[in-house]
């Protein structure tokens, strides 16, 4: 963004952002800002919607009635977050004549990606626990940063979302702790799940920035859409969770993982970033099955949406 060639409108917009003003949907904004926001928020929205599916697989198989109620509530929350976010995205897409149908189409055709973690399999109950504890834990680190986003409607949606994520994380902690305190078989199940999820958890924050930030990142930082890099967020994740994981007697599947006692910087084994790109382009272990399920359900619900839309408004 060459700032010397800005129009008055653009300069005023950036001045507002610099001042810490929050931007509303109807305020003038650079087209580029709108595009960056839609890219981010639509991706977040479909990730919440797709994120309900891995855990939904455990609703019928939850070990107790209490766990079944709690995981059902959590799955419902995730879909609710998708609803909030897709509204925020829709208001931004209005000038383009687009709406949520376009978001869903983009999801089904692969133009819109969703988070790598929701492409993974959840073969055991421990996976449901690890998703709540560590995947949602990772998500809250990212979303906590985004609470300061310059776009007010997104920040407001995130306030609601982060509040509920607090429950999700403790729900996951409770499942993992119960397994850690359980039989050798239960402990082994938890360790297996952690081994499966560890690379995916590191991938969640995106590739580390080498010496230079990407154009997208620079723009998002300039626009105060985000304030931290992928690597800064991943480092926070390590600082918050590594000791807790160890405290349950679990082994993190990375013998090189260590924290520099002076700089506090964590060094770690990089996950396979080519594998990451394969996963998010819908070639992960469960990508096809979950997109298939989402797409079929969407098509089967078409008549419901149509009927509701055509029924006369009451009141």
């Amino acid at each position: 963004m060459p700032e010397e060639t800005l129009t008055d409108q653009e300069a005023y917009f950036l001045e507002r952002v610099d001042r810490g003003d929050r931007i509303e949907a109807d305020d003038w904004m650079p087209e580029d800002y709108r595009q960056q926001l839609v890219r981010l928020i639509a991706m977040h929205a479909v990730s919440e919607i797709m994120g309900a599916l891995p855990e939904k697989e455990w609703v019928p198989r939850a070990p107790t009635l209490y766990r079944k109620l709690a995981i059902t509530a959590k799955v419902q929350d995730e879909v609710g977050h998708g609803q909030l976010l897709i509204r925020v995205a829709e208001d931004l897409m209005r000038p383009w004549g687009k709406n949520r149908e376009d978001v869903m189409d983009d999801l089904f055709t692969g133009r819109l990606k969703y988070h790598n973690v929701f492409h993974m399999a959840t073969p055991t109950w421990a996976d449901a626990g690890v998703i709540g504890w560590l995947v949602d834990g990772a998500a809250v680190i990212t979303q906590g940063m985004s609470l300061s986003c310059s776009y007010a409607p997104y920040a407001r949606a995130l306030q609601r979302i982060v509040e509920e994520e607090g429950f999700h994380i403790q729900h996951g902690e409770s499942i993992c702790m119960a397994l850690a305190e359980g039989t050798p078989m239960q402990r082994a199940m938890l360790q297996d799940a952690l081994n499966r999820w560890w690379p995916a958890l590191l991938m969640f924050f995106g590739p580390p920035e080498k010496s230079q930030l990407s154009t997208h990142q620079l723009r998002n930082i300039r626009y105060r859409i985000r304030s931290k890099t992928n690597e800064e967020l991943r480092q926070r994740f390590f600082s918050k969770y590594v000791h807790r994981i160890w405290s349950l007697g679990l082994t993190i599947p990375d013998p090189t993982l260590q924290q520099d006692p002076f700089t506090k910087e964590w060094t770690y084994q990089q996950p396979d970033w080519d594998e990451f790109r394969r996963i998010v382009s819908n070639h992960g272990p469960r990508s096809e099955a979950r997109l298939g399920l989402r797409s079929t359900t969407y098509q089967e619900g078409e008549w419901v949406r149509r009927t509701i839309a055509l029924s006369p408004a009451v009141g």
Binding site: Q83, A309, V314, G315
Partner: peptide
């Protein structure tokens, strides 16, 4: 917040949910 709905009734149901 806000919801997308075809009628006030549906809007209230969605708002509660």
């Amino acid at each position: 917040f806000n919801v997308l709905a075809s009628s006030p009734d549906m809007a209230m149901a969605l708002a509660e949910e």
